[in-house]
Design a protein around this nucleic acid. Sequence first.
RNA 1: GCCGACGUAGCUCAGCUGGUAGAGCAACGGUUUCGUAAACCGUAGGUCACGGGUUCGAAUCCCGUCGUCGGCUCCA
Length: 679
Amino acid sequence: MDEDRKTPEQRAQMTDIERLRHSTAHVLATAILKIWPEAQFAAGPPVDNGFYYDVDLPHRISPDDFEKIEAEMKKEIKANHPFERVEVSRDEALALGTKGRLAALSDRNEPSKFKLDIIENIPPGETISLYRNGDFIDLCAGPHVMRTGNIGAFKLTSLASAYYKGDEKNPQLQRVYGTAFKTRKELDDYFAMLEEAKKRDHRKLGRELELFVFDDDVGPGLPMFLPRGAVIAEELEKLAKETEFAAGYQRVRTPHIARESLYRKSGHVPYYVESMFPPMELLEEGDRKKLENLAIAKAKHLKSFDEASERVWVRFFDELKKPETSREDLFDELGLINAAEDADRAQIARIDELSRSLGDRYYLKAMNCPHHHKLFAALPRSYRDLPLRLAEYGTDYRYEKSGELFGLMRVRSLQMNDAHLYMTPEQFEAEFNAVNQMYLNYFKLFGIDKYLMRFSTHDPAKLGQKFVDEPELWKKTEDMTRNVLKNSGINFVEVPNEAAFYGPKIDVQAWSVIGREFSIATNQVDFAQPRSFDLRYKDRDNTEKTPICIHRAPLGTHERFIGFLIEHYAGNFPLWLSPEQVRILTIGDEPELLDYARAILNELRGHQVRAEIDISTDKINGKIQRAEQMKVHTMFVIGKRDLEAKVISVRVHGRGNLGATPRDEVISTLLEQIKTRAA
RNA sequence: GCCGACGUAGCUCAGCUGGUAGAGCAACGGUUUCGUAAACCGUAGGUCACGGGUUCGAAUCCCGUCGUCGGCUCCA
């Protein structure tokens, strides 16, 4: 924690709006104390869209309390108290905290426990400061606005719970969120913007445009695509297949499940097993009984060991009490405890191993790489075969925690634009760059201009737990990747401790128009799995070598990418992606007119255009209204006049009536736009 | 997973402190023949998420389960 601590200088660099919001947090605390004087406060910083203050309070704050709290806040703002800074010594700060005076309106019977803890964590020599507004005094580095009256407009927004310092071992606090602006208008604009954002929410549009649904009987996080949504997935697949074919990829197909042994080799068990669905067990009747008995044996063993270990510890503490027991004897005692624990672990491991040897276990695949590695290994490979690029729109299942699920963005079933590239070290730079280039081309096509490349590296402290234990290879591949990034001139930020378990990676983060953040693409280096799968190629010098592998998914998963595109385009897809590209709307229902409309429909469908026809009894305005609501890209409005002149009146969603044009011209322009994936 | 809010017709929502469920749109059946964002009339549609409890009586109150949403990194 301490190494990440902000210096007082860094804290002082708050923007004006952060400063305002931070001050509002103090006003919030002031108001809460007026209502509940026993409240204990922890931290109250400004955050992205506002501020919060964490409070420990027996009363459970509900949104119904907001009005009351806001009324007290308004009084404090109206009083226009100055924010006064006072620097104090550590002893003075501790004395105030002990009297309960920190984050309080007066001395209290209970000490300000969180504030005292925070003081403990302030490094020696660093200035300790307090801020005061009216009766409220808080331990605070600042900075603040000059007076409470400078807070123009604010609103409490929501409640959440949060662990003190984000650690689940710490007590749970109530977190009150709010936001504040200099002026009332800015506050209103902010809430208006949130309303606008809601309209673009992919979950809302997904329902309205009939793209996808969730169903309780199918299960949480398991989206099903309706025909209109499936169209988008298929168009994306076509795009990927074309692009990848041109880039020398080859397509493969693999099953959705595999035996446990595959995932032991890959390292998914144990490194990734938390994120996988529990295995399907194929057991004979007798095996099941054996397995139950082994589970009982394990439980008994753990229990008897606990009791035995308790006795040993008691003996150790007894010895500890006797001053005459020598240092050496005490260490010997400890050594006995360790030895006993090791023996115990070995026995537990043997029981686990016996359990595993029974029956067969199959996992739903969470990634496609192990299967692809097996395909690499299926044939003898020469350096002449490299780089070998195996691509598949693989279907994966990941057991995301229930609280993490979110619309299409975080799901448990997903289809990934996946491929694994196997290469020699000399080929790495070119391949890695080509993948990055592929992203950038896609981004251009979709008009994504705001994105960030995150280069994730490992944390040496977590080797063997979160990351495979290969310190040398980590360093080598991270250096190699960093160099490629630097040489290519792509902007990136480096994020420690977020690598995949098998190697460093690059994620491309983008923001949808409503400001929601997405990791949409990924490019990962894997030095670990090729080794554990013993993948080899015969090099020029007739020796066998292990290839480097790149995992990459430039369009991420269908689920997330489609979710992103829905918000990005606000449901107004470009022609080539549009679920319904053309709807023909007839004015009247004379047989000749319907024949003309149907002939156009058939011609379009003959060219693989997704076209529909509306010959309902609605008036033309009604037909247009419905087509517009479904965001149909192009409407062909066909009446008697069009029939006679052999023209089509074209109306484009969002652009209105474009007038009548000869039939052949309209259709050839349309086909050309689809073919070129025009924006 | 944890904390909180929410769950009423296909969709959007109403239903006050408990008295037996309602509107608009969509659907369906008619009538209407309309030139660029909604013609008219009618019909049907609900185990009020699920399970239990309190009560003479529960969509409404209580408990549990499931699901959805917000938050759980941002450190005086």
